[in-house]
């Protein structure tokens, strides 16, 4: 894949700053990054360093105090840690709602929703309501709903953090498959180093107070890699060392 030159930018963040209270300490300071179209980027950082804030600003849910954010495709789809499914709708209707709000015609919604649920292997659970599904299944419905938005960029805020390791492992595989099949640009926030090393093509490390991008790793994409593999472990050790350096700097 050496012929692959830098893809066009999907997300451009320049000089981004954010403080919640006027005059308070900045949560984000001078964050500058470019994410290429079709890239899978993991954003890693200690708890409270501003990962969610950055993601929410990119999603347009929050305004930056300074700097600019540009999402080339216009809008982004978002997935949260809690599936945030509407509890009174079945899995299918949750996906259909996203289609409806996107403007898909009524007579096409049902089939499209079922097709999307099939992508996450949940066609059989289409008529179940969220409370009848396990946490992992709910997140897969949420993934199908995010795909239903049909946006080039998919922002994910610790989407698998609340799941058990076995379920999470399968969801990693699922997400990777979806990414490879749909060519979406994915920004995946996590504080799990191995998860980042397992999934990302690029891992960005954020510092705390103020939140900045302090380090970056590019991982050659040689196809799916397993979370137990030595490559992932080696990278995870390297990233963890950097993370600890950051933490020590904060203590000083």
């Amino acid at each position: 894949m050496s012929t692959r030159t830098a893809p066009p930018a999907a997300i451009t963040v320049a000089g981004l700053g954010k403080r919640f209270a006027a005059g308070g300490a900045p949560v984000l300071d001078d964050v500058t990054l470019t994410i290429g179209s079709g890239e899978f980027v993991c954003l890693l950082g200690a708890s409270g360093c501003g990962k969610s804030t950055l993601l929410n600003i990119i999603a347009g849910l929050e305004r930056p105090t300074s700097g600019t954010v540009e999402v080339a495709s216009g809008n982004a789809a978002v997935m949260f840690q809690e599936s945030a499914l509407l509890p009174w709708l079945t899995a299918r209707r949750n996906v259909e709602l996203a289609l409806e709000l996107r403007g898909v015609r009524r007579d096409r919604r049902r089939n499209e929703a079922l097709a999307l649920l099939d992508v996450v292997n949940l066609a059989d659970a289409a008529e179940k309501r969220p409370h009848e599904l396990s946490g992992g299944m709910r997140q897969r419905v949420a993934l199908a709903r995010a795909l239903a938005q049909d946006r080039q960029v998919l922002l994910m805020d610790e989407p698998f953090a609340a799941l058990d390791a076995i379920t999470r492992d399968l969801l990693h595989e699922q997400l990777e498959l979806v990414w490879r099949q749909t060519g979406r640009t994915i920004v995946f926030v996590t504080h799990n180093v191995r998860e980042a090393a397992r999934l990302g093509q690029r891992v960005l490390l954020m510092s705390s107070r103020p939140g900045r991008i302090v380090n970056e790793w590019r991982i050659d994409d040689t196809g799916p890699r397993r979370i137990e593999s030595p490559e992932v472990a080696t990278l995870a050790i390297e990233i963890t060392d950097q993370l600890r350096k950051e933490l020590r700097r904060n203590a000083a």
Binding site: N121, L122, D124, A125, K128, E132, L133, S134, G136, M137, R140, I166, T167, L170, E173, Q174, L177
Partner: peptide, 14 residues
């Protein structure tokens, strides 16, 4: 393969 694995896990969890 993933389909089978997920189906198995789903059956266990629901």
């Amino acid at each position: 393969d993933l389909r089978t694995l997920e189906a198995g896990l789903d059956a266990l969890q629901t």
